[in-house]
């Protein structure tokens, strides 16, 4: 059974899962409430949405997937960081290139 603690699925506890759930609900409720009420400026709302999304991804990784800095998770973490880099290049790169393209083609603002 000892092998099952390796490779990305360490054991959790009820307390950990409940904390994960509470944090998820809070970090979901904040952006929904902000957008629904429309009380803040668009730029600020956008920033808070992105912040809450990133925070919630980390909450899920820590509380539900039990990721931490342990050395037995090194390959999970390494591949994870690598994928974040690739995803950033694909998403931000696409947006960047296509915006310039649209600008040069005079298709929009």
């Amino acid at each position: 059974m000892a092998t099952q603690t390796h490779g990305g699925a360490a054991h959790g506890s009820v307390k950990e899962y409940i904390w994960g759930l509470v944090w998820s609900i809070v970090l979901t409720a904040i952006p929904f409430a902000l957008v629904m009420s429309g009380s803040l400026s668009n730029g600020l709302t956008l920033a808070i949405i992105l912040l809450c999304a990133v925070a919630q991804v980390f909450v899920q990784l820590v509380f539900f997937l039990h990721m931490n800095g342990d050395s037995d998770q090194m390959w999970n973490t390494t591949s994870g960081v690598f994928i974040v880099l690739i995803v950033a290049i694909v998403v931000l790169g696409s947006i960047w290139i296509m915006q310039h393209l649209n600008h040069n083609m005079l298709m929009g603002h």
């Binding site: 092998t3 099952q4 390796h6 490779g7 990305g8 699925a9 390959w75 999970n76 591949s79 994870g80 690598f82 994928i83 690739i86 995803v87 694909v90 998403v91 790169g93 696409s94 947006i95 296509m98």
Partner: peptide, 30 residues
């Protein structure tokens, strides 16, 4: 079949699935 390797392999599959979703998100954003 032991858990460590299987889970690490599955984790790497999930990472590749992330790239699939990244392309769809990029398309959506564009």
């Amino acid at each position: 079949d032991y858990a460590g390797d299987t889970l690490l392999g599955f984790w790497i599959y999930i990472m590749s699935d992330c790239i699939l979703f990244a392309t769809l998100f990029a398309t959506y954003a564009v």
